[in-house]
Each structure stands twice: as C-alpha cells, then as structure tokens.
Write a protein that binds this DNA or RNA. Structure first.
Length: 800
DNA sequence: ATAGGGTTAG
C-alpha cells in the first residue's frame, strides 16, 4: 500500500478571499505594491537569470538574420513612422517565436514608444514567458491602457485568474476591452454567475461583450441559457453564430445545430467545419460527407473532422482513405489516425504511424500510451511514458489509469504522488483516476488528501471529478461526507444522483436513498437502470416490500427501463428478506433473461437466512454450474448445512472444493491508521500489538456475556471436525481488526474495517454488541456492502 | 505596429 507516501495532510481551506473594489484603490497603495513586487523580482532575477533579456546586450544564442528593416544607426531624430516600422518588426519576430532577436531590436531602438514596450510584453506572453512579460511591465517608464489590457489578458491566458482580478482592480482607467477580458476570465474559470454579474455591471458593452456572455454559457455547458440569450437579440456577428453552433456540437445536439446552420446569414469555413463534425460525430457520416463535398473550401480542419468522424465510428479503413487523400496534414490529423488504429486494437499499425509521424507532439505520445494501457500492454505504455521528451498532465493521467486498470493500484497511486511532486498541474482526469483507485483500494486517507488538493484546484464542484470523489467516500465507508460532496457538485448528472442513491443503499440507509430518489425526480432527472438498482435495493434494506414491487413493475411504464438481472437480484433479495421464498422462486421463473450467478446467489442467501436447505442446495447447484470457481458460494452452502446441523454435508462440501480445485480465498480484514495498513487474518498473532488485542477481546467477551451473547462457535463445536474446530476457536479477522481499531482510533471517530469476504454471522452478532458496549460507531465494508454498527444494531438489518 | 470573442485531435 502506498499510503505512507504522503505524510503531510493537505489543506482543504479555500484560497484566501480576493478583494474587489472596482479599481478604487488609492495611488499610494498601488505604487507600494508595485515597488515591493519590482524589488522581489529584481532580487529573484539576480539569483536566477541575470536579466540578460532586459538589461540589453545581446543574448548568447545566435539568432537568424533580421528582416530587411535597417535601423537608422546614426539618426538623431527618429520619425514616428520609423518607430512604427521597428514595432512592426518586433511583432513579426515575436510571432515567429524569436524572442531574442525581438529583444535585440528593442534594445537597439533609438527611441521607444508605448507600443514598443507593449509589443514586447505581448510577444513574451505569446511565447509563454509570463515572468519576463511581468518584469517588463513593471519596468516600463509609463504604461498606457493597452499595456494594462495586455497584462490582464496575459494573466487570464496563463491561468492566473487571481492575479488578473488584482490587476483589474488596480486599474484606474478601464475600457470595454478590459471588461471583456475580465468577463472571459470568469467564463474560463467556470464562474458563470459572476460572469453574468460582470456583464451586467459593464459601463459599455459591445458585440464582443455579448459574445463573451454567450461563450460563458457555451463553454460551461449551459446550452439552454446560451440559446435563450442568442434568441433574445438580433444581428449577432458570425463568431457568435459559430459559438452557439460549437455549443450544439459539444452537446451532440445535431438537430439544433442543423437548424442554426441553415439559418446562418453568412457562413465561413469554421461554420462548415463545425457542422461537418457535428454530423460526423453523431453517426451521420453520409450527411457529413455530403456537406464535406458541398463545402466551398476544405482546409485541414475540414479534412480532419471527416477523418476523426470515421475514426469515432470505428471505420478505420475509411479514415485511412481520407488520410491518404488529404492534401495537407497536421499533427492533429496524424494523431486522429493513430487514435483510430488504437481504438481498433491495431497497436502495431498505430506504432507504425507514430514512428512515421514527422511532427510528434505530446498528444501523439499520450494516444500511444493510452492505447497500450487500454490494450493491456502496460509494459509498452510504461516504456513510452519513460522515454517521452516531455509529459503533460494527460500523460500522467494515462499512465495512472493504465496502472489502475491493470489492477496495480499501488503503482497507480504512487504515480499520482510522484506527479504531485513533479509540481505540474494535475488535470481533472488524473484526479478522477486517482480517486477511483482510492475507492477500489479503500485508500481513505489518501482519498481525503486528494480531496484537499481538489478543493485547492477548484475542481471539486465539477461533475466528473465530483462523482469520483463521491464514489470514493461511499466506497471508503463514509456516508456523511459524500452527501456534502454531492451537494457541492454544481451540475449534477444522472451518475451523481445514482452514485449517491446506490451509496445510501449499500450502506443500509434505505430511507435516505428513497428520499433522494424523490428529489432526483423533482429536479427533473430521468432515472435509469442504475438508479432503479439503487432504489430496489434501498426498498429491500428498509423492508418496503410493496413499495419495491411497485417500483419494479412500474419502471418500464414510467421510465422505459427493462429489468435486467441486477433488478431481479434485488427483487429476490427483497422477497427473500421478507421470507417470501416461493414468490422469489416464481419471479425467477418469470425472468425474460437467464438468471445469473448473482441472482441465484440472492436466492441462496435467502434460503440460508430462512433455513431452507433444499432450496439453498438447488440454488447452489446452479451457481456451481455457472461459476465453478466461485468459492464464496461453496462456503455459503457449507454454512447453510452447518446451520441445520448437517455436518456430514459440511465435510462433503470440503471434499468437493478440494476435488474441483477451488480454493477458498483467505479472509483478511484491515484497518487504515495514520497512513498505514494493519492487516489481520484469522487467529493472527503476527501483529506487534497482538497480546493487547487478545487481552482486550477476552475482556470484551466477559462484558458481552453479560449482554446475553453466546458464541455460536461454542455451541456447535462438538459436531465439527478437528481442523474446523481449531479454525473456529480462533478469532476471525474482523474481530481482531475491530478490537485493534477500538484501541487505536481516537474516541469519537468512527471505526472503519475492511474485509475481503462476507462478514461472518457470529462476528456480526458480536460486533453489534461490541458497538453498544464501547459506544462507538463501527463501519465494516465486506465484499459487497457496508455495515454500520451502532448501539447494538446494524444498518443491514441482519440480512446480507 | 500593441489589448477582448468562435471551430478540429489526445
């Protein structure tokens, strides 16, 4: 386990609140801040780079020849048209990524204007050098409004929204460009309501402002609001038409997109490309092809849209034809082709194209890594990951997912920690992956720390990440925290609701699950098959037999959901719990699909609880034929025999297991304590605290006897063979883990124990009483559900 | 000559 890897607890506090005062900050403060910043930048640059970029002189590296413009070397007076010419050249150089030669020009200018400085700043920002841009901005003798606006958008583009807001507030004069930039900052950071507020506050609006609000809605998936805004006004410029069209594309609203496209008064190449990919991505390749042929111009985007349309529809050979036909290819086209081969599991061809690709970028590497990982070749994925020239957050996410999916959770989490240490930005997908790995391995402590990082990154309100976070808490045995997470998800989808409902159900909180189901419908969501599994099992847990039946029989009519084996399993469970074994059997006979092992398992469980050995045997036979390797079922049947005193059959089962070569998976229970996993097996004496644990258990037994508890093992010992007897005399792993946790988890905090198998019945009874004696909440996760023991009762209602 | 809005791949 990798839990010891992060020792420091992540802070969950939000970043400090930023001030906002509409730019009415006194001059003095502005200068003081500026001075302090300037000072710190200067001393920093003395340590790192001797600011050669700024203090003029020529940078060390050789730069290409300068364009024709000759600087007037000896001129004493510089005409303004000369300065304009210089400025223009600086911009040209910057656009070609030639920062050094631009700087050389700048340094050799006999006279500079605002524009010269601004062009330099803007150029550095264009080339990703926020640090130098900032330094120049601070050093320039005077700034005009454009300087401020350049810096403002620079901060926003480099994801420094906090700095952007500060800068905006420091601006004494603002124009519509400044406001528009701020608006787009709010939009890009997902602050929809704030963006609207800014829009309403703007003293002057132009068409870019209107488009900014429209883009806010589109970028954040609020397509309905975007549509409403768009229809509220006429005369939108072409970009806005394209913007809404792009929104429809993202939401796969093909019909809406088509209507809008046909309504467009003017269409440019972007509009054609968008509508083509709209059709291509929505299984309408014929129409896409027609539009492709109709399109007045076909640029790389047009061709690539078509290509990726074929790829997305699994038509990799057609994609290849397009690829070969394309007059011009860029890295996106190559990557799409590689992705096509990856998807069709032709990794050798993907590799061939990858090797042949002249312009590999990070995405090409990422596609290959993801491909290898998804095709189960973690070794190749890993080797590409290690030799790629530069990694981004997607590369990390891909390798983390690869490890997680190949069952190597430990390595997956280790990579996450390493990625964090690497210092780069962690994207949503890496978070989601790491969280679901935590969920699978019940790495609660790490999961909570990741939650802290999520809040800092501002991702916790997002739907995908939020759902993963929610699932992590549910699967790690918590039920209050997930609800908080659930509430914080800003745009809940069906999965969010389902995760929460199923979470409640698995924890035995049937009432809450059904309440949430009600809210879900009120919120306008249409339940799907997963929702109904949650609802039906919640009904089972709460003993609402009739209600459950009603939901089961009406879900087709109300929501168009056909019952699958999972729904039937819930119903068998529900009827079984109520002792209605005949009804359960009849229901199974009525199933339109063949019952699977889980469904028979539910029947076996019901038979066991109600002591119906005959039915249990029948169910077990079915399970053995369907899943001969399912050791759990042999054990279950064996327990059923034991409960009815059929000891000979118990040993027969043992023989049968031996003959079929099925090995009972050894039972383990574990407790996570301060980033360490404490693992226990039956009768375990390996733990350093072993003596204390056993002494405590004996002490507990005395108290439990006073509560009327009689150990089931003591009752049946005389009929068990020697081996079994020795086994039963020992404490089961869950008891050891619970005792250890009571001794070590600070009082007031819940005790969480994980077990890889079903909780033993005797232990279940014992732990109920223990929860009462010690006055603690004990939560046990077994292989398929949660038990919350408190005050002598368990949320499973003694049926699991 | 410098600042604000839209489309394609992973």
């Amino acid at each position: 386990m990798a839990h010891h890897l992060i020792h420091r607890r992540a802070t969950t506090s939000r970043q400090s609140v930023e001030f906002e005062n509409n730019g009415l900050i006194p001059m003095v403060r502005d200068f003081k801040m500026r001075f302090r910043r300037l000072h710190s930048i200067c001393s920093r640059s003395l340590l790192n780079e001797p600011a050669s970029h700024l203090r003029a002189e020529l940078p060390r590296r050789k730069s290409p020849k300068l364009p024709s413009c000759k600087p007037p070397a000896k001129a004493e007076k510089v005409s303004s048209s000369d300065i304009v010419q210089w400025n223009r050249t600086i911009t040209q150089h910057m656009r070609q990524g030639e920062c050094d030669s631009a700087l050389r020009l700048f340094n050799s200018m006999p006279a500079k204007s605002y524009v010269s400085w601004n062009a330099m700043i803007s150029g550095y920002l264009l080339n990703g050098r926020l640090d130098i841009a900032q330094q120049l901005f601070d050093e320039m003798p005077q700034r005009d409004l454009v300087s401020w606006n350049i810096m403002l958008s620079g901060y926003i583009k480099s994801k420094n929204f906090g700095a952007a807001k500060m800068l905006f507030n420091q601006m004494l004069v603002k124009d519509v460009v400044s406001w528009n930039a701020l608006l787009s900052g709010y939009a890009q950071n997902g602050y929809i309501a704030d963006a609207k507020r800014i829009f309403d506050m703007m003293p002057v609006k132009n068409e870019i402002s209107w488009n900014g609000l429209l883009a806010t809605y589109v970028q954040n998936g609020r397509i309905e609001e975007a549509r409403k805004l768009f229809e509220s006004k006429d005369n939108w410029p072409l970009v806005s038409w394209n913007c809404l069209l792009g929104g429809y594309l993202k939401k796969h609203l093909l019909a809406e997109a088509r209507v809008l496209f046909d309504r467009m008064p003017v269409k440019d190449q972007v509009s054609w490309n968008t509508i083509i990919s709209c059709h291509a991505q929505n299984d309408n390749l014929e129409e896409a092809r027609k539009l492709f042929d109709e399109s007045p111009i076909r640029d790389v985007f047009t061709w690539t849209s078509m290509l990726s349309g074929y790829v997305q529809n699994g038509m990799v050979d057609e994609a290849r034809r397009i690829f070969d036909e394309m007059p011009e290819k860029n890295e996106v086209s190559w990557n799409a082709m590689i992705a096509g081969y990856v998807q069709s599991k032709r990794m050798d061809l993907a590799r061939e194209f990858f090797e042949a690709m002249p312009c590999k970028n990070v995405s090409s590497w990422n596609t290959m890594i993801t491909g290898y990982a998804q095709n189960g070749d973690i070794v190749s994925a890993r080797s590409l990951f290690h030799c790629m020239p530069c990694r981004d957050c997607i590369s990390w996410a891909a390798i983390i997912a690869g490890y997680a999916q190949s069952g190597n959770s430990e390595e997956a989490l280790r990579m996450f920690v390493e990625m964090k240490r690497d210092g780069g930005r962690i994207n949503r997908s890496a978070f989601t992956c790491a969280l679901s790995t935590c969920a699978d391995t019940a790495a609660f402590e790490l999961g909570k720390q990741i939650h802290g990082l999520l809040v800092k990154a501002g991702y916790h309100t997002g739907c995908y990440v939020g759902n993963a976070l929610l699932a992590m808490y549910c699967k790690c045995g918590s039920i209050d925290e997930p609800y908080d997470v659930f509430e914080e998800i800003e745009e809940k989808d069906v999965v969010s609701w389902n995760t929460m409902i199923v979470g409640y159900a698995r924890h035995g909180f049937g009432k809450q699950a059904l309440q949430l189901f009600k809210s879900m419908k009120e919120a306008g969501f249409k339940p799907d098959d997963v929702t109904m599994v949650g609802v039906l099992s919640a009904c089972g847990h709460t003993g609402l037999i009739d209600k459950g039946m009603e939901y089961f029989y009406s879900m087709g009519r109300d929501y168009g959901i056909t019952a699958n084996p999972k729904h039937y399993t819930c119903m068998i469970d529900l009827l079984g719990r109520a002792g209605r074994l005949n009804d359960a059997q009849n229901l199974m006979k009525d199933m339109p699909c063949e019952p699977d092992a889980a469904t028979w398992g539910a029947l076996l469980g019901a038979s066991r609880i109600h002591g119906n050995t005959e039915l249990g045997e029948k169910a077990a036979e079915m399970i053995f034929s369907l899943e001969p390797w399912n050791a759990g079922m042999y054990v279950l049947l064996s327990n059923l025999y034991a409960a009815s005193g059929r000891w000979r059959d118990v040993s027969k089962m043992r023989l049968k297991m031996r003959d079929t070569g099925v090995r009972k998976m050894p039972g383990y229970s574990w407790v996570e304590l301060q980033n360490q996993i404490h693992l226990f097996s039956v009768g375990d004496t390996m733990h350093p605290d072993s003596k204390r644990i056993y002494a405590f258990l004996e002490e507990l037994e005395l108290l439990m006897k006073q509560e009327g508890y009689v150990s089931a093992t003591k009752l049946v010992l005389h009929d068990v063979d020697e081996e079994e007897k020795a086994h039963m005399l020992k404490y089961h792993s869950e008891k050891l883990a619970v005792a250890f946790a009571i001794l070590n988890v600070p009082s007031g905090r819940p005790i969480r124990v994980m077990k890889n198998l079903r909780v033993c019945g005797d232990c279940h009874t014992a732990i109920k009483i223990i929860s009462k004696i010690v006055g603690r909440l004990i939560i046990i996760r077994d292989n398929n559900r949660f038990h919350h023991f408190s005050g002598g009762v368990c949320t499973c209602g003694d049926y699991w």
